[in-house]
């Protein structure tokens, strides 16, 4: 876990490209094998190499949450992990959230429908991250109040300012206790 505490010596050899590795990811239930250099983030692997552009890049530094995806059911920022570090893992993106209904047809995840009904977005760019984050939050099971939702959804910035509608949408699906206050 040591970083380059002692500043890295200047690299004098001519610049070169990293070696490629085989990376296996199960994305939205489909096993995928990619040839990637280690410097490819999970986010760029999804967007640039698999063309799953539903996952958004809003800062690329873990400061906005637009890239939130589920890895083995847990929400993470796809921009701050390398695809190769996720080798063998199950990734769920916004494209994989829809659920089969009773007739076997693809239907929206309840959170997706609630976001539409509550107008929980405007420009839509943070929305896939918000929705994946909400699903991850529900999996985690630590929400008791609306204030908990506000705090636990604070890793997803919405510059359009749809926060109150986002909380309403999530509440309508989770139906937690109303605020103590």
């Amino acid at each position: 876990m040591t970083l380059t505490e002692k500043a890295a010596p200047p690299m004098k050899q001519p610049p070169s490209l990293p070696a490629m590795h085989t990376v296996k990811l199960t994305v939205n239930g489909t096993e995928t094998e990619l040839q990637l250099a280690p410097w490819t983030s999970l986010l760029d692997a999804l967007r640039e190499y698999m063309h799953l552009t539903g996952t958004k890049k809003g800062c690329d530094h873990g400061q906005c949450g637009a890239c939130t995806v589920l890895v083995n059911g847990k929400r993470i920022n796809a921009c701050l992990t390398l695809a190769i570090m996720q080798d063998g893992n199950e990734i769920t993106t916004i494209e994989g959230l829809s659920q089969k209904d009773a007739d076997g047809k693809d239907g929206l995840h309840p959170i997706q429908q609630a976001f539409m009904d509550h107008d929980a977005f405007q420009c839509g760019y943070c929305t896939p991250g918000q929705i994946c984050s909400a699903v991850g939050m529900m999996n985690e099971g630590h929400v008791k109040t609306a204030d908990d939702i506000r705090e636990l959804m604070s890793g997803n910035i919405c510059r359009c300012g749809a926060y109150t509608n986002i909380v309403d949408a999530i509440q309508s699906v989770m139906n937690p206790q109303p605020d103590a206050a």
């Binding site: 967007r47 799953l52 539903g54 977005f121 839509g124 760019y125």
Partner: peptide, 21 residues
């Protein structure tokens, strides 16, 4: 009325400028 572009936005199908391959 619910936003008519809502379905595209909640499913990740809405394409923004960097997403046209």
């Amino acid at each position: 009325i619910n936003r008519l572009d809502g379905l595209d936005k909640v499913t990740g199908k809405a394409k923004y400028a960097a997403e046209f391959d």
